[in-house]
Design a protein around this nucleic acid. Structure first.
Lengths: 343, 343
DNA sequence: ATGATTATTGACAGCGCTACCACCGCATTG
DNA sequence: CAATGCGGTGGTAGCGCTGTCAATAATCAT
């Protein structure tokens, strides 16, 4: 029966199959699992597809197979430089694969995250990447009901939903503070903004290290729930100086705060590191060229994204990861801003 | 006929229709255009859907209607802060709408862009956002054949594919240089990295302004195709000083280069702005808190994203934009780093 | 050699939704 | 009062692809 609603010149699988002299289903298999075909047919289908310029229809495929080739990625913020590196890793890693990345932003809200997960569920994603380990119970339930591999990134925790790639923020902060204590710094301040879970854990690491050395003093800690910025770094540092004028070092939970602190020191003619040492976090590109170069904690954000998406794709395709939890560690990048000043 | 392959507990439109006592078509219409239903049926379908927790299947919808609700967004880089603001605008703008954003990264390559457009074409997107106006002829052809609204962002040009939101990089650079010339700066350097089309146009603006004042000197221009960074700013500035030791001002094509230049000045004990003035571009958050605060050019990146996606969604839904080309302009943010130094 | 296993292939029947068109009943019009 | 228009509704027939399973051909173990 002739219908007005016929395809708009689009090449369909059937045409490819006809030209190749095989059944549509065989042609279909060629695109999904070429190994299953005999070499002869494989080549015939390949030629036919090439000749016709065939491109599979993803919607039809998704409908028929009841799964998509979409990988959902939930990150808290587009603005934060930290995530742009992770993203680069994710996109690079998914590169030539058939999976497409569906990126969404939770705005640091676990309720927003839950809502987005619900949305994803309706889409039957092939896999998901979520940030952090602080999902709501409901989010976890949704995630578990989705029956697809999940990678949690950015940090590690005791109870992975499925897979994890990250590092211990607590340990990183602990290492920074222990190092400063070894250098004989005593009044080490803590500057934190936004106070998301990762930042909270850096605060815990700081607190542990300070307590262990009997140097803990709540007046050394300044935090704000407001989002982070260089300007905020200056503001928080000014506050800290007021509360603890005898300060000799500052650990900032990120490099923006550290840079803001450095600028504030320049403004007040405070010598860094002679008067006050500064350590940042993330080791963004710019810290090394500041004056003086800022110490920081290098984290493997690009690799984190890359490894996460690779693990995820492997899991989707039934190649289970050798280890479900990967600790990428961190590295103290010690520069002049925290150079030793006392014997 | 009983089939093994029945739906996995998923609620379908048919069930909703049955419960509401209407035909599936009517139920379908409820989700796409509720106004078309009589109030009585509208409410019945609404109740039924709510009661069953119905969520439309996007793949089935896409297959049947032969279009998707995906908006493709092509940007050159995730790392560049500039785009993160645009992205925020895009995501915020698409917020509660039914459109989902499919973000891809061209890595500043128009060939990669062409390839990605080809990929998008197979997906029948509802609309597209592309960066800049330097598409290949082939890309333009693909774009035009796709039959969906397109917004070009970041800059303006004479021959829009469809719609445009941006500003004139040429005019912005021209304004900066004209201002510096008015302040009696004469040996104004130009620092450029990555040299993408927008940066090229800033160089043109610089050149125009310098020529017009008979101050043009190719020795004042340093560029590199390498990607931009704060460190690169320092390196380029050092080069520039070598070629033009009598330099009295530097225009950097972005704030990272400007910050790198500032750091290099600090390292060499060059006074800013007394010895050399610095102007950046983009007005990123940090420039205002540098010491001295850096002059820059504010651009409305967030609005650009937001307006672009809004125009696009309007066009998709048949509400044509009042103006297809929107110039968001720019604003010179004059700060101490380029304060007047001569009468 | 013979049954059993494996590799290839194809027929069938939808996946869940919407485009298209026909239809119904009511109001408006000449 | 028939002709016309229109908002609202439903029936039919796929959209382009793949899961399932059966059939066949090729290979293997005994």
């Amino acid at each position: 029966m002739a219908r007005a609603r016929t395809s708009s010149g689009k090449v369909r699988l059937t045409e490819v199959a006809k030209l190749a002299g095989v059944s549509p289903i065989t042609a279909s298999r060629f695109f999904r699992n070429p190994e299953a075909l005999s070499p002869a047919k494989r080549e015939r289908v390949d030629n036919a597809a090439r000749q016709l310029g065939y491109v599979p229809d993803l919607a039809a495929r998704a409908l028929a197979s009841r799964r998509t080739e979409v990988v959902g990625v939930l990150i808290p913020s587009f603005t934060n430089n930290v995530f742009s590196d992770v993203l680069r890793g994710i996109y690079d890693g998914s590169g030539e694969s058939r999976y497409s990345i569906q990126l969404v932003n939770t705005d640091y809200s676990i309720l927003q995250e839950e809502k987005l997960l619900r949305l994803f569920k309706a889409q039957r994603p092939a896999g998901l990447v979520v940030t952090g380990i602080n999902q709501t119970a409901e989010s976890r339930a949704i995630l578990e009901s989705m029956n697809c591999p999940v990678v949690q990134i950015m940090e590690l925790g005791p109870d992975p939903i499925d897979m994890m790639v990250g590092f211990s923020h607590n340990a990183a902060a602990f290492a920074v503070i222990s190092h400063l204590i070894e250098l004989n710094f005593k009044r080490i301040g803590f500057l934190g903004a936004r106070m998301d879970p990762r930042v909270q854990r850096r605060l815990e690491g700081y607190t542990d290290a300070m307590r262990r050395a009997a140097l803990y003093d709540p007046r050394l800690i300044i935090t704000t729930p407001v989002s982070t910025s260089v300007t905020m770094g200056g503001t928080l540092f000014a506050d800290l100086l007021m509360k603890a004028p005898d300060l000799d070092a500052v650990f900032c939970v990120n490099d923006d705060l550290a840079l803001g602190t450095l600028f504030e020191c320049q403004r007040r003619r405070i010598q860094v590191p002679e008067d006050i040492a500064i350590v940042g976090f993330n080791d963004l590109e710019y810290v090394a060229s500041a004056v003086p170069p800022l110490s920081s904690v290098r984290t493997n954000r690009y690799d984190m994204g890359r490894i996460a998406i690779t693990m995820l794709m492997d899991a989707i395709e039934g190649r289970p990861a050798p280890a479900p939890v990967i600790d990428l560690g961190f590295e103290l990048m010690l520069r002049r801003s925290s150079a030793a000043r006392r014997a």
